[in-house]
């Protein structure tokens, strides 16, 4: 396992109003890991991911993501991190290909990079020409993951990436995430399904009641 830390969260407290959604959390994730954050609904998994994506302010403690300070260098954190929540963040009226092309223009990726991302995520010409609104849940997820690849995100933060997918769709996503790690990305997924995520991840972080209660090999 590499020693370069891409997530270094220390004594982090995130308050949502007066409620401590994350309490005294210490998390360290190294480059190239595929880590699952596991816990019941409302445990603080999404809060941890959103903190790492630069979407929530720290109330106390410190956090460095991809080497950048989460408070002082928030825009740099966001530019290097891909976050996929419950929505896919796609334009439903555009085709999958037009979505990828749009992101290519936004981040300055060339046509070859966009095509390579589509190929990596198994999006063939027929799917690329289909409006996103008409794609299946799994195909939409694959398109959203392709967007992350187009964005050249180094750290992928995925909140319940298997939600709403059938067994085949879940297997496809697992394979794509393993490929992403093999290609150099670090992947962190939040899931309440221990069995599936345990078979996928190299390490598990257990969250309960906003507290990290266990970190270790699966």
């Amino acid at each position: 396992m590499g020693e370069t830390s891409v997530v270094d969260v220390r004594d982090a407290v995130v308050l949502l109003g007066s409620f401590p959604a994350l309490a005294e959390a210490n998390v360290r994730i190294n480059a190239g890991e595929l880590v699952v954050v596991h816990g019941p609904n409302g445990a603080g998994k999404t809060t941890l991911l959103r903190l790492c994506a630069g979407l929530l302010p720290l109330s106390r403690g410190s956090a460095r993501i991809m080497g950048f300070d989460i408070e002082a260098e928030r825009s740099l954190v966001r530019a290097s991190v891909g976050f996929l929540g419950h929505a896919n963040g796609l334009y439903l009226d555009l085709t999958a290909g037009e979505n990828l092309s749009f992101w290519g223009h936004v981040v300055g990726a060339n046509r070859e990079e966009v095509t390579a991302a589509a190929v990596r995520m198994g999006l063939n010409d027929r799917l690329l020409a289909t409006p996103v609104a008409r794609l299946s849940a799994g195909q939409k997820r694959r398109t959203a993951l392709a967007v992350m690849a187009v964005r050249r995100a180094s750290l992928w933060l995925l909140d319940e990436p298997h939600a709403g997918l059938d067994a085949a769709g879940r297997d496809e996503i697992d394979a794509l995430l393993r490929d992403a790690v093999a290609a150099g990305a670090t992947v962190v997924i939040a899931s309440h399904e221990l069995e599936r995520s345990a078979s996928l991840a190299s390490r598990r972080i257990e969250v309960v009641g906003g507290r990290i209660i266990e970190q270790g090999e699966r």
Binding site: A53, G54, L55, S75, L76, V77, R78, A79, V81, G82, F83, G85, A87, G89, L90, Y91, V106, V107, V147, R151
Partner: peptide
């Protein structure tokens, strides 16, 4: 999608 743009910085 607007959140995706925002999250992406």
């Amino acid at each position: 999608a607007i959140d995706a743009l925002r999250v992406a910085g």
